[in-house]
């Protein structure tokens, strides 16, 4: 048996997040966030700001809580029974967990793209129009058509599917499906887009296309991305947060994190000593 206690990373203490977790003009700011699944604590005291029109990457080994943290930002954890969250999460200085805050409205403002592409078993058109129809964003068929086209163009998918808008969305390739999911998300024009390992199920070419798309989208949207790939984090993000066993260890400019990490754990991870 391997003696877990002896492993070096367990000896390193995490008192508080190092680096520069706080910035001015934050879109999202979280303070003292703890997340529990029943008895088990998944996130310990997370403090971080997410800047406007920036891409922030969240990295860390599996099970470190980065996905859980991301799902707190649009209250997706609400759908999981016995998950509860304490602390403050503010979007534009409004606490999103306050009573009068509405999860439906919040999710319209904070969109999400998942690890595995999950287009609805509907036509491509209906997939993109889904949110707009739900929320009543388009007042006419023509407006809806325009919205669908615009969203598909922005997601870089329109050229490929313009002749098959009424075919099923599940018939597309993996990369196309993921772009369809992005198109679906931007169709309701959110302020923030959360991406949970959006390329982990895709091949390198599709990944490159999506990464380009992310950079393009960040001009207009705030993007938070969870990724397993440090290269991806380095390529697309302005800031990077490193999570470890539920603790937010280090947050800083992406460059700084990858070239000159402050914390021993971060260094261990990015130099590939574990993870």
């Amino acid at each position: 048996m391997i003696n877990i206690e002896k492993r070096e990373e367990f000896d390193i203490k995490i008192d508080k997040t190092v680096g520069k977790p706080f910035i001015k003009d934050a879109k999202f700011s979280t303070r003292n966030v703890d997340v529990f699944y029943g008895e088990k604590q998944a996130i310990f005291d997370a403090n971080i700001d997410i800047g406007k029109n920036q891409i922030i990457a969240m990295i860390g080994p599996s099970g470190c809580g980065k996905s859980t943290f991301l799902r707190c930002l649009n209250r997706m954890n609400d759908t999981i029974q016995d998950c509860h969250i304490s602390g403050d999460i503010k979007l534009d200085d409004e606490d999103i967990y306050q009573k009068q805050q509405d999860p439906v409205l919040l999710r319209a403002r904070v969109g999400m793209v998942f690890q595995k592409p999950n287009p609805f078993p509907k036509s491509i058109y209906d997939n993109v129009a889904y949110g707009a129809k739900l929320h009543g964003l388009a007042s006419s068929k023509i407006e809806l058509d325009e919205l669908v086209e615009k969203s598909l163009i922005r997601a870089g998918l329109f050229k490929e599917v313009k002749d098959s808008l009424h075919k099923s969305g599940t018939g597309l390739s993996g990369g196309q499906q993921q772009r369809l999911c992005i198109a679906r998300t931007i169709a309701i024009d959110p302020e923030v887009i959360l991406m949970d390992e959006p390329t982990s199920a895709l091949d390198p070419i599709a990944t490159a296309v999506i990464e380009e798309l992310m950079i393009d989208l960040s001009k207009k949207y705030t993007i938070a991305i969870v990724t397993h790939s440090m290269q991806q984090a380095a390529r697309v993000s302005q800031r990077t947060a490193y999570f470890h066993l539920g603790y937010l260890v280090e947050v800083n400019d992406t460059n700084t994190v990858f070239t000159n990490p402050e914390h021993q754990l971060t260094e261990n991870y990015i130099t590939g000593r574990f993870g």
Partner: peptide, 17 residues
């Protein structure tokens, strides 16, 4: 699959929708 439900909730759909 749960993924389809998640996808819909993330778009801001209510449960019945």
């Amino acid at each position: 699959p749960q993924a389809l439900r998640d996808g819909s909730y993330a778009m801001g759909a209510t449960k019945s929708e």
